[in-house]
Design a binder for these strands. Sequence first.
DNA 1: GTTCGATCCTAGCATCGCTAGACAAGCAAG
DNA 2: CTTGCTTGTCTAGCGATGCTAGGATCGAAC
Lengths: 192, 192
Amino acid sequence: MSVQERKQRERAERERLIVATARELAEQQGWDAVTTRRLAERIEYSQPVLYSHFRGKREIIGAVALEGATEMAAALRAATSAADGPRTRVTALARAYLEFAARNPAVYDAMFELDGGLAFANEDTPPPLKDAFAALLESLGEVAGDGVHPALFTEVFWAALHGLATLTRAGRLPPEHTEPRVELLVARLAMV
Amino acid sequence: MSVQERKQRERAERERLIVATARELAEQQGWDAVTTRRLAERIEYSQPVLYSHFRGKREIIGAVALEGATEMAAALRAATSAADGPRTRVTALARAYLEFAARNPAVYDAMFELDGGLAFANEDTPPPLKDAFAALLESLGEVAGDGVHPALFTEVFWAALHGLATLTRAGRLPPEHTEPRVELLVARLAMV
DNA sequence: GTTCGATCCTAGCATCGCTAGACAAGCAAG
DNA sequence: CTTGCTTGTCTAGCGATGCTAGGATCGAAC
């Protein structure tokens, strides 16, 4: 059985390599540059190997998105756990969210802009995505205000963050005034 | 000169046909289905004709985006002019914005998700885009609150609407609770 | 050592955006 | 009316894309 196990290990290792390479390439040159040929060349295998791991390019994007969701959840929790008081936590959360989006644009795209073939907002949603939303909910739920459902509040706050992140990165909003925008958002939405 | 004028008119007419057809095809089957070949076939001309009007597919998307911006500005103004009182106006504005995005998904994509090669948030921004932002500013500026720059407030509110629109349409947010989300957003952000 | 199955690669398909160069239609000059 | 030229359009093709079929190769098992 040891032989099979070794092969499985190597296969899993190669799969990680594919995802990591795709992510790296996307961050360096954008998702348009992530073609199956270039990706295959970088991992030093031929194209069809990719298709023995993933159904297609789409699933590779999805894998990057899941990886990103895990990291984002961790980043959000790290930022909020260092802050005390609901208000400070929400501000830290908002800043961490936007910073994650700005520093990992390709990953953020994989999560929210591109089609990675992932299910959202239903029972088939993969755990990392649910957990990322949970990380938001943890800090945002406590400032939802009386009579407002925490999940609903989280959705609205999240949408605002997502809007700021995407519009800024796409050049629709000048990037200079990010900080005052965050402050305004927190000041108005969060009920201390 | 009459001959030249007629030709110019016909050319302009054909250009409108291209844009309208691209938009129609995109709304019917998504932007992925808008290929230069299919588009050429629908307007009953050959592919290269498209390139005598536009530099490439990108510019066609940009043209659809501009058309959409004009319509959106009109829709927003129509919705707000029928409401009296700042608070009612803002609610009407938010609903109109989200409805426009939901009813014209391909146009909304052309405006904000796809690359139409348009300049944003600087002096080169085409008039229709500036005007659409102005339409937002007209109603949102009056509820910015004391000491808050109207443009900054508009950016934040707009980002929130954009986030709701895109996340909902991409299946990231369940579409059922759109109305309470809008109400929460207006209740918190707008200072009556 | 031989067989056989898993693994991987070469080669190719259909389609994409875009362009060069041939061709025809229509106008101006003789 | 014919000739020549400009203007407009089309056919054909390039390189690149995602994806796949079918053959070659390699290693494990008897």
